[in-house]
Design a protein around this nucleic acid. Structure first.
Lengths: 213, 213, 213, 213
DNA sequence: AGCTAATCGAGACGGTACGTCGGGTCTTAGA
DNA sequence: TCTAAGACCCGACGTACCGTCTCGATTAGCT
């Protein structure tokens, strides 16, 4: 991935740094190996979750030696984090639609997330991401950015303010955190989120649904 | 877990079941061992977190054999979960004060939680609980109960409704989840919660602070 | 091997020490595992030699976990040494025959040793023992005892002195060392020992063959 | 080893072969690199012994790439063997002095060898050479030549025969082998050779010291 | 001067084995 | 019958070297 490497300032481990580095003798990092490792990680993460993902499994799946993994990623957390950054584990950001009606859009957005959480491997994925966040600060930060404080969500809120559907002084970031945080809490406690409970959650953070008939 | 566990519906693993059981031959479960295990677990959990807590460490610290632990608790997760239930890891419920002013009381309550999160070992503790929740559904459920959906919080909300400080149709449970979920998300991403951000969070779920001035 | 353990003073690692130890709770070392490990070691040593013998191979062959090996033997050298002591690698002592004629007996004895050295796996065995001796002092000592300074050889010399076939002040131990050392040197340099060269070696240490015709 | 090695019968790997080669384009083997590798090998061999000598260590110490080593020497054994041949590891041959009295000269010669064996790093050196001989036939052969069957020793014996100090039919080569072999055997078993034991060894192979008083 | 071919350093690569750690099960002896 | 002690199998960890390979830079003879 030569092209986008340059414009990303905070590079995760495992990201190609050739462009930035001065000329150096010798062979260059094998792109094939890098990609194979990331793909193997994604695959095994999806299959087994974070805890049961093993470096040896990744190495075997990728057809790569363990040492090659450890050469570029210092730990399992860093590897998974890098995978996440590349959008290989998790849709990089769920885009919030814009139909003109905020509440409707948020419901659609949450439904998409819940559709993921609803399937067994989706729940595993999310819980695994949480586990990974616990071990690795980077992953946590990215999870936060991908969901709670995502640009997509904030932008939708800004439109809503312009529309008058949201108060001008609404706490955009905190509303996002509250919604996503509640979902995470439910994921942790294996509490299912029914459609009703989603509506109630939106009631809580947006105020009660108005003019419902 | 021994045979008499089956007929006891609500008991967590590790809870002393002597009272419930009928007459039986042989020595009875050693209370000293049970307590020693729980205390050792608390201590080591606080020191090292969930991941780096080892059953061997617990056994050694408690002066107990590993088998004695496994006889009564089926797994590490169950042991930690039990500890949590006993309130040995985590203040069982942060009681929400009642001064008459809801927002003030929630601020105080959140401050208490944040005081815990602020110290380094408090953060470790919370993240470890999250990690434990990932592995063990019971722990997740209890974490949920202790915090988001805690009786203490709900009761305080009910008082607020009676007082007129909260709308009668407010989504009590969801408000709690939203608040705690947001904190959890921040804990995962190592984002500090300033006093300001707490206020903004309360703004988001309770509506903006009224008549401030 | 309970019976002979008691009378061996200098116990090697891996030797059963139950008799000597005080009463202790808990399970006792698994005899089956011990034997399986030693047999696997012998087999693999014979097949692959010392250098290419691996602990993982031994564990797999013995159907034992690596940890069980490391629990009882601190290193590969110690394990092989123990095997040697048990006579599992190498006939514990080549007994020197006694036909009345010393030179004839020594020739027979050397022939037996050379027969072993002559076959490819015999050479490997001996060179591997040498390699093992380099790494592990115990093995060296036992190799020395089994061959150069072996009781069997010394006893045969003593008979020869009584018979008048050897001078009363002959340096028994050194003669043994000289013979075995010469063989060793040849093994190291891959020099074959012809029958002739054996005779010349005996000439060198016993004096020239008398009255040959 | 490059292609022109085939036509050179006696050359060891790593020996400079420029003179023998035909016209060829491109740069020629770097003498500096060759010398640096050999010196690094000597140094590390002395410090750590054969087993713990690593090619990577040699490359680093010599300031040379691994490939440069492997280009010229096919294996660790070959490299060490070459070092030995150059007399960099081991005095190429301990010359046997000639004072007119054979036994006296051999004692002096053995003392020199024992002086080396007596010091800890000398023992390591010898044991390492033995280990290297096990792995590499060339090294074994050279060890044999340098010591047991050394020209210097045989020549001294021939003088002794001329002097009448040794029987005309004495087995010169075997006597050398016996002496040196006994020393090796002792080195392997970590048995110290006292002055006395040296004399007894000479008694064994030369016949008892005559007219000692 | 340019071309060609082999050198050199650096070091990435797939492997194998190391020795350690921890999980959860099983066995024994004593209370 | 329960307990403490701890041996057992299993699987994963992260490290060390192996010997091969691939680069870019350099160098020396040949055209």
């Amino acid at each position: 991935m030569p092209e986008q490497a340059a414009d990303v300032s905070e590079q995760a481990p495992g990201v190609d740094e050739r462009a930035a580095s001065a000329h150096r003798q010798g062979p260059v990092r094998s792109e094939a190996a890098r990609v194979a490792v990331l793909e193997a990680t994604s695959k095994l993460f999806a299959e087994r979750g974070y805890e049961r993902l093993t470096m040896e499994g990744v190495a075997a799946e990728a057809g790569v030696s363990k040492q090659t993994i450890y050469r570029w990623w210092p730990s399992k957390g860093a590897l998974v984090s890098d995978c996440l950054l590349q959008g290989q584990l998790f849709p990089n950001r769920f885009t919030v639609p814009n139909s003109g009606e905020l509440r409707h859009d948020l419901t659609a957005w949450l439904s998409a997330i819940l559709a993921l959480l609803g399937q067994p491997q989706g729940e595993l994925l999310v819980r695994s991401l949480i586990a990974a966040s616990v071990e690795n600060a980077d992953i946590g930060r990215r999870l936060h950015e991908s969901l709670g404080a995502s640009r997509s969500l904030t932008e939708r809120f800004e439109i809503a303010i312009a529309d008058g559907q949201l108060a001008a002084d609404a706490r955009l970031e905190e509303i996002g955190e509250a919604i996503v945080g509640a979902l995470l809490l439910r994921a942790l406690s294996r509490t299912e989120s029914s459609d009703d409970s989603i509506q109630r959650l939106l009631d809580a953070v947006l105020g009660p649904a108005q003019a419902k008939g």
